[in-house]
Simulated scan of single mutants.
Amino acid sequence: MSTFETRLTELGISLPEPVAPVANYVPFVRTGDQVYISGQVSIGPDGLIKGTLGLDMDVEAGQAAARLCGINLIAQLKAACGGDLARLKRVVKLGGFVAAVPGFTDIPKVINGCSDLMVEVFGDAGRHARSAVSCPVLPLGAAVEVDGVFVIA
């Protein structure tokens, strides 16, 4: 078991089966040593977390939704690595999208739910560049969606 797999276990995280695409795209693309993972929505064992930050969700609930996005990114990454997370060299960039009301300005705090997870699991290799933006609605009514770029061996 890789150090990253051990860390997931220590954190009490069981990776789900990677979520299948809901439209005409693939879950990830490998090109050279880079993996581009399509946006992963806030879905977990209890289903899709829906909502709008600043309306029916607070920052803490948004962070939990973003963390689920991160878990789903890691599940896709594992699939892209042929099942071996030890191949990860670096989390390069995350793009975070938050369904929010106009005037909601804590978008970065929400996406920290995913960013913090990457550092918890991957240590310094999990530190990344990032964007965090709001939008009025996300696919399927999801509260949060995050995509990512990773370097693997």
Rank of each mutant, 00 (worst) to 15 (best):
I49P: 01
E120L: 13
P136Y: 08
R127P: 01
M57D: 00
P102H: 05
N24D: 12
T31P: 00
A80R: 00
T105D: 13
I43M: 08
V22Q: 13
P102M: 02
V146P: 05
C114S: 14
V59K: 07
A129V: 04
V119E: 10
T31K: 15
S115D: 08
Y25K: 05
A64C: 10
G47R: 10
R87L: 12
N112K: 14
L11E: 05
K93Q: 14
Q63N: 08
A75N: 12
L8I: 01
L68I: 05
G62Y: 09
A75M: 12
A142Q: 00
C114G: 11
L88Q: 09
M118S: 11
C114T: 09
L11Q: 06
A65R: 05
A20T: 07
D33R: 15
F28T: 03
G51V: 01
A75H: 08
D116Q: 11
R30S: 14
R7V: 03
A64L: 14
I74V: 14
I152V: 15
V41P: 03
V22L: 14
V59S: 04
I152S: 13
L138K: 12
D147P: 08
S14Y: 03
G126T: 09
P45I: 02
A153N: 12
G113T: 01
A66S: 09
V22G: 10
V19P: 04
S134L: 04
Q40H: 02
V137Y: 12
G126W: 02
G113E: 07
V35T: 08
V59H: 05
D58A: 07
Q34P: 01
L48Q: 03
P108H: 04
G51N: 05
G44C: 04
P139V: 02
K93P: 03
D116S: 14
K50D: 00
Q34D: 02
V92N: 12
K109H: 12
P136V: 03
R7K: 14
T105R: 13
P45Q: 13
I49A: 07
A143E: 02
L11G: 07
L88I: 11
R87P: 01
G83T: 02
P139W: 01
I49Q: 10
D33A: 13
R7L: 01
G82L: 06
G113W: 01
K93S: 14
L11S: 07
G54H: 04
T3A: 15
D46G: 06
A132L: 05
T6E: 07
A125D: 13
L15W: 02
A65V: 04
L8M: 10
P45S: 15
